[in-house]
């Protein structure tokens, strides 16, 4: 069930467009922001809110890469895997994070703290290799920087 706040935010988003369907991705993001991911029930709720069918909503939810249709950890790490970061050592970075967290790309740590995902070019090629944790960009990554970041985020609860 969508709560009152989510409903209100979705209604607000609907007003920005000629047709309510256009607010669908915004609605999914509103839900995801609060629950971490979009469950089947959430798909149904968003569909109801926008007079769409669950299949129509899921057709969008599964197309777009930033909508998570499976549970994620408290912190989502998006590591840029595109060309500039690759040249600057993306593989080393991923390997390091993987070792530290004990999970590979697309996986969540058993304690539910981190999900590690690849992402296309973050537009931080001048600070490659780069990654994003919970929407914050971190560039010029080295093993040391990563270790520090992981410590910081581990202590942090999701806002």
């Amino acid at each position: 069930m969508l709560n009152a706040e989510e409903k209100q935010l979705i209604e607000q988003a609907v007003r920005h467009y000629e047709h309510p369907r256009a607010a669908c991705l915004e609605a999914l993001k509103i839900v995801q922001e609060r629950r971490g991911w979009v469950s089947d029930d959430d798909v149904r709720d968003v569909a109801d809110a926008l007079a769409m069918s669950p299949a129509e909503v899921d057709s969008l939810a599964t197309f777009y890469s930033l909508i998570f249709r499976r549970p994620v950890g408290r912190h989502v790490i998006l590591v840029c895997d595109s060309v500039s970061c690759w040249i600057m050592g993306y593989e080393r970075i991923v390997q390091h994070i993987s070792e530290r967290l004990g999970v590979g790309l697309g996986e969540t740590t058993p304690d539910g703290e981190f999900t590690l995902l690849p992402v296309v070019c973050l537009g931080a090629c001048d600070r490659a290799p780069a990654m994003m944790i919970d929407g914050d960009l971190h560039g010029d990554l080295t093993e040391e920087v990563i270790d520090q970041l992981l410590v910081t985020y581990r202590g942090k609860k999701m806002e």
């Binding site: 047709h19 669908c24 993001k29 969008l60 197309f63 777009y64 890469s65 930033l66």
Partner: peptide, 24 residues
């Protein structure tokens, strides 16, 4: 309007579809 990922949203007609709440 903030997107939800996908390079195709940059192609102008893909962008328009995405903005309308369709697949890009």
């Amino acid at each position: 309007h903030t997107g939800a990922g996908r390079y195709m949203c940059g192609e102008e007609t893909g962008l328009i579809n995405s903005l309308e709440g369709r697949r890009a």
